[in-house]
Computed example of a mutant assay.
Amino acid sequence: MAAGIDHLVTSGTFSLDGGTWDVDNNVWIVGDDDEAIVIDAAHDAEAILKALGGRTLRAIICTHAHNDHIDAAPALATRTGARIHLHPDDLPLWKRTHPDNAPDAELADGQVLTIAGTDLTVLHTPGHAPGAVCLYARDLGTVFTGDTLFRGGPGATGRSFSDFPTIIESIRNRLLTLPPETAVRTGHGEGTTIGDEAPHLEEWVQRGH
């Protein structure tokens, strides 16, 4: 069978720059009946294991290294033997949460990850975080955007390691060039499509979203 997408929401906290906030995170599982990858192992390794349902976990992909997206990654890796993949530009953020653990593999722009016969292309999209990436699955008509693009605008850039002009350029050049019908599966909240968000780019620029 072709790869499918499973979704669960886990809850915990996000901490940076001395503040802590309660958050709900989207965890995405891409695979078939036998094998899968997890995109953003957030908060609850046990819940993610349950959602995997005994499938072989081939990789844990981190869209970026804010603590709410990686806090359960080492525990999930220990339980499954899966390798943790992160763009190297986000290692400084990773070390704030996991100073005694390191990711197992580096993500690179243009890299192709294959699971259950489906390719996911890594798009380096800095701005929300230096090493933020999105994963484009053309055959599934979807892009997993982490915290780079949401319904209604770009991810937050008001904290350390982030930059508004950079995230705008990432969205403009790497995401809005995808087919307009592409489903956007985000790191938090509801999804959207590239076509629904594209007309609003200049509005975001004007208001410094």
Results as ranks from 00 to 15, higher is better:
residue 167 I to P: 02
residue 121 T to R: 15
residue 160 S to N: 12
residue 164 F to Q: 04
residue 106 E to Y: 13
residue 124 H to A: 14
residue 156 A to P: 04
residue 145 T to A: 10
residue 106 E to F: 15
residue 166 T to Y: 05
residue 178 L to E: 09
residue 189 G to L: 02
residue 168 I to C: 11
residue 136 Y to D: 13
residue 152 G to C: 11
residue 133 V to D: 01
residue 108 A to G: 10
residue 121 T to H: 06
residue 155 G to Y: 01
residue 125 T to R: 00
residue 128 H to R: 00
residue 117 G to L: 01
residue 102 A to W: 00
residue 132 A to N: 14
residue 171 I to R: 00
residue 152 G to Q: 11
residue 122 V to W: 06
residue 158 G to K: 15
residue 136 Y to S: 08
residue 179 P to L: 03
residue 163 D to R: 13
residue 112 V to M: 02
residue 152 G to L: 08
residue 177 T to S: 09
residue 184 V to P: 02
residue 140 L to K: 08
residue 183 A to V: 14
residue 144 F to P: 00
residue 171 I to D: 00
residue 148 T to K: 02
residue 185 R to G: 03
residue 158 G to I: 02
residue 143 V to N: 01
residue 167 I to M: 05
residue 111 Q to S: 00
residue 122 V to K: 05
residue 150 F to W: 14
residue 135 L to C: 09
residue 134 C to K: 06
residue 112 V to R: 11
residue 105 A to P: 04
residue 108 A to C: 05
residue 146 G to A: 08
residue 189 G to Y: 09
residue 111 Q to V: 00
residue 140 L to C: 06
residue 122 V to S: 05
residue 122 V to C: 13
residue 155 G to F: 00
residue 139 D to I: 10
residue 111 Q to K: 11
residue 173 N to C: 12
residue 167 I to H: 01
residue 186 T to K: 07
residue 150 F to K: 08
residue 122 V to E: 07
residue 167 I to R: 01
residue 156 A to L: 05
residue 159 R to I: 13
residue 164 F to K: 08
residue 114 T to M: 07
residue 111 Q to Y: 02
residue 185 R to K: 14
residue 112 V to Q: 04
residue 186 T to L: 05
residue 118 T to C: 15
residue 181 E to R: 12
residue 176 L to A: 03
residue 112 V to W: 01
residue 109 D to H: 14
residue 166 T to E: 08
residue 129 A to E: 03
residue 144 F to I: 07
residue 153 G to D: 04
residue 164 F to M: 08
residue 134 C to M: 12
residue 150 F to D: 04
residue 141 G to D: 14
residue 125 T to Q: 00
residue 187 G to Q: 09
residue 187 G to W: 13
residue 145 T to W: 03
residue 116 A to T: 00
residue 126 P to C: 07
residue 149 L to T: 01
residue 144 F to S: 01
residue 145 T to V: 13
residue 183 A to P: 03
residue 123 L to R: 08
residue 116 A to K: 05
residue 138 R to T: 08
residue 163 D to V: 00
residue 154 P to G: 11
residue 108 A to E: 12
residue 187 G to S: 13
residue 187 G to H: 05
residue 182 T to L: 13
residue 116 A to G: 06
residue 177 T to Y: 08
residue 186 T to R: 07
residue 114 T to H: 06
residue 151 R to K: 14
residue 126 P to A: 07
residue 175 L to M: 09
residue 119 D to A: 14
residue 105 A to M: 12
residue 127 G to C: 09
residue 162 S to M: 08
residue 179 P to F: 01
residue 133 V to S: 04
residue 133 V to P: 06
residue 140 L to W: 03
residue 132 A to T: 13
